[in-house]
Amino acid sequence: MRIGALVATTLLFVCVPAAATEPQAIPGAAPVPPVKVIAESPGGPYYYRDVRPVFGGGVRLTSGLDVRLGIGDESTKVAYGLDVLAVGRLGFGRGAKVLAVWPEAGYSFVGSDWHLLGAGVGPALQAREGLSFGLVPRVLYGVAGGREAKGLRTCAIIDFSFGQGGLGFEVAHQYVAWGDHHIHEIRFALESAVVWGQGEKP
């Protein structure tokens, strides 16, 4: 009891002066007006907030195997193939996946003595991030077997794009003719691309 009384007395002395000097909050001088809600019309557009597609140019490398089909005068065999290409990635509209045009031009090496220049353009379904698909035909001109060669390659490209870069796989049919030779090949290649331009960031 004595201890309780001592504590109570102490608290009284400590708390009462403190309470007397506690600052009082100054009241607000004006009532807060009602807040209006400005509503958006339903069915609003969704365009500028959507991501921009990549629209630019860069470099693409492919490296793989050309399987000769044995059509015409060549027996079936496999050759190494390498491409170094300047590419465009021209996406149009807005969205995570858009229609695009993919122009490509560059140098192609096959086997041991094919040196071909090629250029072409094709449609694509282009993603800023994720899988892109393109179908790009290229006309070829160069040297094969030491003689003038002409041809056509049609490339189906599956590219996992991540803004500026991309990695993927290419399957292509290639027809090359020189002299009396007519060669059909299927190329299986790994590819990588780097692109600079608008749309690397959203």
Binding site: I38, A39, E40, S41, G44, P45, Y46, Y47, Y48, R49
Partner: peptide, 10 residues
Amino acid sequence: AGNHFREAAC
């Protein structure tokens, strides 16, 4: 006109 302010800001 439709108060599409988000689109307008972007």
